[in-house]
């Protein structure tokens, strides 16, 4: 049985798709057979970030409607053997994603994959509910600012009441906080909420903190999941987060302002 993880946030533009791409890539790179599903019907982006937009023939809605098989719609990643992408439809209505259809696709994927990553659209409507319904775990992507934290809180409430696990009275969805666009400089100046602030407000365990970085924007534009930028702090922070997701213990990095290295101090002193 696959583990189903939803990447969600309530608010838009906080880094859900970036995170979905990196987490799925990270899991696949560790040898887990992973599929990432784009639930954002009409606003599909995941294929761009995964650099497979030119290979989309069939999409998620086609499979739900029985117009294509999963085998036809799944796109195999060019970089990592064990990674597959199920793109969203760009032309259909989001209501075409029926609960029964989504359930059938997820069930079928569960048979062959280790991880199913569901990239949720923003908001708390149909698409978002479909994306989170089957989740075993949830990665709640949050920016360190008040409105994003509020929306994350809302989506946590929905996870507790509207997910399959909640409806069936099973063990609740495991919740993880992923703080993105974190800028220690601005936190120090009091312009941003700190990790502790956000943890305190949302009271769920911290999965990772991704520092704000130009690399994220660049790699998105190039169709490269940030986690593959192994030299960058954002890439390393995503790698830490994936490690923690599979149960490794990693210390948190990039939480404080970068100190000047010994050389720069010696020469620029």
């Amino acid at each position: 049985m696959a583990k189903i993880i939803v990447v969600t946030s309530g608010k838009g533009g906080v880094g859900k798709t970036t995170t979905s791409a990196s987490i799925s890539t990270g899991l696949a790179r560790r040898g887990h057979k992973t599929v990432v599903i784009d639930f954002d019907v009409g606003l599909r982006n995941l294929d761009l970030i995964m650099n497979c937009e030119r290979r989309v023939v069939y999409d998620f809605v086609n499979v739900i409607q029985g117009e294509a098989t999963l085998g036809q719609a799944l796109i195999k990643d060019k970089r990592i053997e064990t990674l597959y992408i199920l793109p969203a439809s760009q032309t259909r209505e989001k209501e075409a994603m029926t609960p029964e259809g989504v359930e059938r696709v997820i069930e079928e994927l569960s048979k062959t994959f280790d991880y199913i990553i569901c990239d949720s659209p923003a908001g708390i409507e149909h698409g978002a509910l479909m994306a989170l319904y089957h989740a075993d775990e949830a990665v709640v992507v949050t920016n360190p600012e008040v409105s994003s934290v509020r929306d994350s809180d809302r989506i946590l409430g929905i996870l507790q009441s509207k997910s399959k696990r909640a409806e069936k009275g099973l063990e609740p969805v495991r919740e993880h906080l992923l703080l993105t666009r974190y800028n220690p400089d601005r936190v120090e100046r009091g312009e941003m909420l700190s990790v502790e602030d956000v943890k305190d407000i949302l009271s769920i365990p911290l999965l990772g903190v991704i520092p704000e970085s130009q690399v994220v924007l660049n790699s998105s534009n190039q169709g490269l999941p940030v986690i593959l930028e192994t030299e960058s702090d954002a890439g390393q922070a995503y790698d830490d987060a994936v490690a923690r997701l599979v149960g490794e213990d990693r210390p948190f990095r990039f939480l404080t302002k970068e100190k000047k290295g010994i050389f720069s101090r010696m020469f620029k002193g």
């Binding site: 708390i124 509020r150 929306d151 809180d153 809302r154 946590l156 409430g157 507790q160």
Partner: peptide, 8 residues
């Protein structure tokens, strides 16, 4: 015993 979230 659970946090009461926004919207609840």
């Amino acid at each position: 015993t659970q946090p009461v979230r926004s919207g609840q």
